[in-house]
Design a protein around this nucleic acid. Structure first.
Length: 699
DNA sequence: GCAACTATC
């Protein structure tokens, strides 16, 4: 049985309620007040927020009960006169649902549309529907939303919820964001690539509109954390407004000693809680990845079966993004009476999925996250320490409905050494797409674009070099401009190399096929690989497998899926993720529309697979590897030793030359998404590039 | 020789 985990006395704190930083100009506090959780974010559409009451008085009462209501007048008075402001609001403060309404009701920014951005589409949709209910209007009229594949807004729309990516796409055709009078950037603390680019775009638009004497653009940055100095400084010392929320106190425990084995420590903690706490109190454990979570869940269930009499039973539920949707939903259902729910999750439960009723959080302090290395474009997926911000975010998951407890499986000293903030994504990803978008917006100098957290010059140069190789941009007197090809590439919501693949496809007579392949590459994997049923999967998949690689195999899967009429049972039998394959279908339709608008001919290669491979070679030539005499592989450009990923259909094959979609460093450096190509094709595709590489190899 | 954090256009 588990031994004592050894936690010292708890510290009490209220997440986010720490002393506001010195820069806070105004303090808006509000009486707590009861009432329903009106401002609570709801991010799973299936568990839709109880619709606002049909009775106007009740809706009004609920709105008035929110903490933010007390500050309404003061907020409006301040915001009326400000160009930019930063608003810190704790979870449950009601800021996201109420502030846009206050601005509208107060006539602030009424000359244009009020935009509210969200990192996630479900959030944008459910917030819009919530706010339109509160305004007792039909969704899409006064209040609307715009997300990929779904635009529910009209001429009448004055409050519009969008994903940050969607507003960014709008900015390509109108970099001054003319239709908006106010942009509210919500969840800014999450620092998604899109939000980070938007910071710069919005700041530039604000400045430019002022210079042109146009309608001013009001910018409000909303964040749930206290680290807002950066936001404030970036927007010219914008005032920081602080809004109290309704978070419950949480006790935090640290371990006395550093833990060698965080999985063991997590198990010990879970069963310590399980034996002491009333069974109605649920536990949320943060681990790093699918395999680890499945393995730990199994151990948990095994231990639970052998507990002493009188111990309540335990319902163990894994949670990660690639888990089938139906299984994800189980975490929202209450456990049977007398039974405790333990959810073992990736960082998906940190922000994307909010589980009600969690009393205990067990934080291993580890996360699996991507790092990016600009030379070689290597993405490294590694288990690493969380940041302090992330640890607080995890802790906060325990106090959403009542007071909670958080067990941190590291010492307080260790915690003090964690990074203060998570490195923003913009410093960890390939910037080719971002640079292409900025160039499409005609940003004067992309190399010195005013990012809030600047990526390194190397990093930006690598992206520019990549775009140059793809033929997307040219240099004229030290000025970078898009070529006609580059402008076309920017029209696609795709990584530049995939946009290029589509634009090249007419030349190879395989546009229909490239549309399918690129769509499948731009969604999460459509192939399910449950570890416990590996042999079955292999047997069923054989009929789709192409000896020419993964891209052609994916194409075969999609064709078979279409022939089966998009049938869900077919998906199940064939270990195909129906959600992802349907999404790929939607992406495909969107990309096809864009092609048709450009008057591209829709041609099919029919049975000719070689033309597809040639087309891939001409767009992915930067990611190639060759078989070495000793039977291993090395990338063509940097001679990095690489191996074929076990998930590839070419895993047991030894083609002389391949292009790959992705390089992934876990235990070793793996290529994923492979296609067999002819080395001559690559040289044809980019003669200068390969001549340079050969020269470099000789020197 | 053996494996995939999370979003989004």
């Amino acid at each position: 049985m588990p031994e004592e985990a050894g936690f010292p006395p708890a510290k009490r704190f209220r997440p986010g309620c720490g002393p506001p930083g010195g820069r806070v100009v105004m303090l808006l506090t509000a009486g707590g007040g009861g009432g329903g959780g009106g401002g609570r974010r709801q991010q799973q559409p299936v568990l839709a927020q109880p619709a606002a009451s049909p009775y106007p008085e009740a809706v009004e009462r609920q709105r008035r009960s929110l903490p933010i209501f007390q500050a309404r007048g003061q907020l409006l008075a301040q915001l009326r006169n400000l160009d930019s402001a930063v608003l810190i609001g704790e979870t449950g403060s009601g800021k996201t649902t109420q502030l846009p309404q206050y601005l509208y009701e107060g006539g602030v920014g009424r000359q244009g549309v009020i935009a509210v951005t969200q990192p996630r589409r479900v959030a944008a949709i459910s917030l819009a529907s919530r706010v339109s209910d509160e305004k007792r209007t039909e969704l899409g009229k006064l209040v609307g939303y715009s997300v990929r594949f779904d635009d529910i807004s009209s001429e009448d729309t004055r409050i519009k919820f969008l994903t940050d990516g969607m507003l960014l796409r709008e900015a390509i055709s109108d970099s001054l964001l003319r239709k908006y009078s106010c942009v509210i950037l919500d969840e800014a603390h999450e620092r998604t690539v899109h939000t980070d680019v938007l910071f710069g775009v919005v700041k530039a638009a604000q400045k430019r509109r002022k210079e042109l004497g146009r309608l001013p653009l009001k910018v409000i940055v909303m964040s749930a954390t206290m680290d807002v100095d950066l936001f404030s400084q970036y927007f010219g010392g914008a005032p920081v407004l602080y809004l109290e929320g309704r978070q419950h106190p949480i006790q935090v425990f640290y371990t006395k000693q550093p833990q060698q084995d965080y999985l063991h420590a997590a198990l010990v903690s879970v069963f310590q809680i399980h034996q002491e706490a009333p069974p109605s109190q649920d536990i949320l454990v943060f681990l790093t990845g699918q395999e680890e979570i499945e393995a730990t869940s199994k151990i948990c269930r095994d231990i639970a079966r052998h507990l002493p009499d009188g111990c309540p039973s335990l319902l163990v539920l894994p949670l990660y993004a690639s888990l089938p949707y139906a299984q994800q939903l189980r975490v929202f259902q209450g456990a049977p009476k007398g039974c405790r729910k333990v959810i073992i999750s990736t960082n998906i439960a940190e922000t994307s999925i909010t589980i009600p009723g969690i009393k205990y959080v067990v934080d291993t302090g580890m996360v699996k996250a991507k790092k990016y290395n600009p030379d070689g474009g290597l993405e490294v997926l590694a288990v690493q320490r969380v940041s302090k911000t992330q640890a607080w975010q995890r802790t906060g998951r325990a106090g959403r409905e009542d007071s909670g407890v958080c067990y941190r499986l590291y010492t307080e000293d260790e915690f003090e050494k964690f990074d203060k903030m998570t490195v923003p994504e913009i410093q960890r990803c390939n910037l080719a797409g971002v640079m292409l978008q900025l160039l499409a917006m005609k940003v004067p100098d992309v190399l010195t674009f005013d990012f809030m957290s600047k990526p390194s010059p190397d990093h930006i140069q690598a992206a520019v070099a990549q775009l140059e190789l793809l033929g997307a941009l040219e240099r004229k007197d030290e000025q970078l401009t898009l070529t006609p090809l580059g402008r076309k590439m920017a029209a696609f919501p795709l990584e530049p190399r995939f946009a290029k693949a589509i634009l090249l496809s007419p030349k190879f007579h395989c546009t229909e096929e490239m549309l399918t392949i690129v769509s499948l590459l731009s969604v999460d994997s459509v192939l399910c690989n449950p570890p416990s049923r590996r042999d079955e999967v292999q047997a069923v998949r054989r009929k789709f497998v192409s000896s020419e690689g993964d891209h052609v195999t994916l194409l075969n899967v999609y064709r078979a899926f279409r022939s089966a009429g998009g049938n869900k049972d077919w998906c199940k039998e064939n270990f195909v993720n129906s959600k992802n394959v349907m999404l790929a279908g939607e992406v495909r339709a969107q990309l096809r529309d864009i092609c048709l608008k450009m008057s591209m001919p829709m041609v099919s290669s029919r049975g000719d697979v070689e033309s597809i491979r040639r087309c891939l070679a001409h767009s992915l030539f930067m990611s190639t590897a060759e078989l070495q005499p000793d039977g291993t592989y090395a990338t063509t450009d940097t001679h990095q030793p690489v191996a074929i990923h076990p998930s590839s259909v070419l895993f047991h094959c030894r083609p002389a030359c391949v292009v790959y979609t992705e390089l992934l460093y876990t235990n070793r450096c793996y290529m994923r998404g492979l296609c067999v190509v002819d080395a001559d094709w690559l040289y044809e595709a980019a003669p200068d590039y390969f001549r340079r590489k050969l020269r470099a190899a000789r020197d």
